[in-house]
Write a protein that binds this DNA or RNA. Structure first.
Lengths: 360, 360
DNA sequence: TTGAAAGCGCTACCAA
DNA sequence: TTGGTAGCGCTTTCAA
């Protein structure tokens, strides 16, 4: 207790000695891997209790070659989307007897690589990889090639052959578009997240493709990109609204951005949804709590998390197979979207009002 | 690659053989723990590179008796307060070469105990313990007695002699009270978090003690307790406002509860802050983004996290000492608090208006 | 039903 | 400047 170097806890050897049996025996009464005499069993257990012995999991891991640990690489714990995802994963993990080793990368590619290396060196049995950058990651590629247990979650890695779980982002983008269209919005803007992220492309493209088909393609200069953050959304929103005051609605690639857009709109004296509709993506818990509750495209976060863990376990104790699971999104209508002012005005003036009917 | 049992990665032995040197040498060129010949150094490094050798951290840990891992016990990752705390801790940890092993307890005492045991068995070098329940925890007590490196964070454990980092909760409660008082609120309610939590007692008592001193003690039936959640706040808020429609302000023991109270107020047709002022605690990131931006007592989350890790490291490589660090809170005024209607009405009617002047 | 002993992959002491 | 080797604390054959 005095020296700082040696916690010197009680070992299996101590137990064996105190119980007057062999180490082997202690090991087996504890693991139940082979029958033991009733008598010795009780003697050993008593000693274990008395000495408060707990097997050293490090030594166990070295001997058995498994650590009952899974590595988690995540880009941004401050985005509430990820804690929700982590929560789901952790529930599955605990249930399966696994623990999570956390690696926060701040969306930095260099950190992603380092973390991955470190996790492997620590002999985690698998990794759930959530990226925050579009940069290629050689370490990740190597692991995938070696069929190291790995599942990519949320953000797809282009070109990587590995199991993954994603939301139907393109579909989500389409849902967003259809919703705004039906409300009567014709002048819409889009604020995507970090350029190059597959999820961003999909959401944005799904949105644009729908508007194009409906006959009102979104002009290129009405689509901008920014970071997945409130601040990013605020900046980008301000710029977009300043350059295009004619916009009546904005689709944001995630909720954080949407929050920022709402703030920007207010600064510019535009009420939401009165003068501007805002639509988000994720359906983070707080989405229901912000000023006008946010209309958003919900990702099935819980299912994504548990499915990811399930896939990982499949690999850990079984065959590797690059399954690609896509989970459906759905639109959650709340208070941040409404028909554009013009349409409402017309409606109020009376009469049926198919918004900008094709022939008009 | 076929068999599921043996990842059989390359070991130090392989490197030694391939480089034509001893295992010892390989170990030392990698650790730098002793000088090595320029030539052999390069040879070894080349082989390491070529074989893509990475030392097995499990084996290292067993040999060196350190894991470069810290355990984190946290009650509720869905409360944004904790991700923010985790973020701060993780920054310090990564900087010091440590990794975080995550244990989510869902505020369950049984899980807290299990996690603690498991973390110790996994030989983490220390534990940062954030509790979510008021239940006593024998395992924790044992660890503290044994001077196992441990720091209690955020939520104090009564009677436990161990290092800890906390916000000045009582002070925070006082700040909240003074603010509402100065705005002119005389009929106030309090919604605490889980009964028995020290932080809750401190915040509530700080608040009440101030109102008492100012001559308007808060009647007991205007103080209620609930879970640290939006839902809890909503339920409790609804009940309180229904029973006491005369209240003009509510102090909530954390931001989540405050959010819930705001929702409850709306349901009851009361605007915030027009007809009801709401004050929170924590200053979670989203506090600035909700409907009326939340006036709240800010905890110095980042500093709490980094200080906790610093204290832990102090114990890991040094002397145990039950330091108790308390960090100051401060009031952040935003939009959810305002003078009560009566006062505003009177003010508008003209004339100086010491709210409910003692002689009135 | 029990034990001896050979690892698991490293570190670090002791020699050379 | 280098190597042999005894652990670290456990699991698991193989024998008894």
């Amino acid at each position: 207790m005095q020296n700082g170097l040696e916690p010197a806890s009680v070992t299996i050897r101590d137990v064996a000695r105190a119980a007057g049996v062999s180490i082997t025996t202690v090991s087996h009464v504890l693991s139940g891997h082979r029958p033991t005499g009733e008598l010795t069993r009780h003697r050993v257990l008593a000693v274990v209790e008395q000495l408060n012995y707990r097997p050293n999991r490090v030594a166990q891991s070295l001997a058995t070659r498994h650590t009952r640990t899974v590595g988690l690489i995540l880009p941004d714990i401050l985005n509430p989307f990820f804690p929700q995802l982590v929560h789901a994963i952790e529930r599955s993990a605990i249930h399966a007897g696994y623990r999570l080793l956390l690696c926060h990368t701040d969306s930095l590619e260099s950190l992603e690589r380092e973390c991955l290396e470190d996790l492997v060196a620590r002999r985690v049995e698998g990794v759930i990889y959530m990226r925050g950058t579009a940069a290629p990651n050689p370490v990740l590629e190597r692991l995938a090639e070696e069929h190291f247990p790995l599942v990519v979650l949320d953000e797809e890695v282009p070109g990587l052959v590995a199991p993954g779980v994603y939301a139907m982002n393109r579909l989500g983008g389409r849902m967003a578009a259809r919703h705004l269209w039906q409300l009567g919005h014709r002048d819409v803007g889009v604020i995507g997240g970090p350029r190059g992220l597959v999820s961003v492309c999909d959401r944005v493209q799904g949105f644009q493709e729908t508007y194009r088909r409906l006959g009102a393609p979104v002009p290129e200069e009405r689509t901008v990109f920014t970071g997945f953050s409130v601040h990013g959304g605020q900046e980008a929103g301000r710029g977009l609204l300043l350059r295009h005051p004619e916009l009546t609605a904005v689709f944001a690639a995630n909720d954080l951005i949407a929050f920022g857009v709402i703030q920007a709109a207010r600064e510019l004296g535009r009420s939401v949804p009165g003068s501007l509709s805002v639509l988000g993506f994720d359906d983070v818990t707080t989405a229901a709590m912000v000023d006008p509750p946010l209309t958003t495209v919900r990702q099935p976060i819980r299912r994504m998390g548990s499915e990811a863990f399930r896939l990982l376990m499949g690999q850990v104790r079984g065959t590797w197979e690059p399954v690609r699971r896509q989970l459906p999104t759905r639109l959650v209508e709340r208070g941040s979207t409404a028909p554009p002012e013009r349409v409402r005005a017309v409606s109020a003036a009376g009469g049926a009002t198919p918004p900008r009917s094709p022939g008009a």
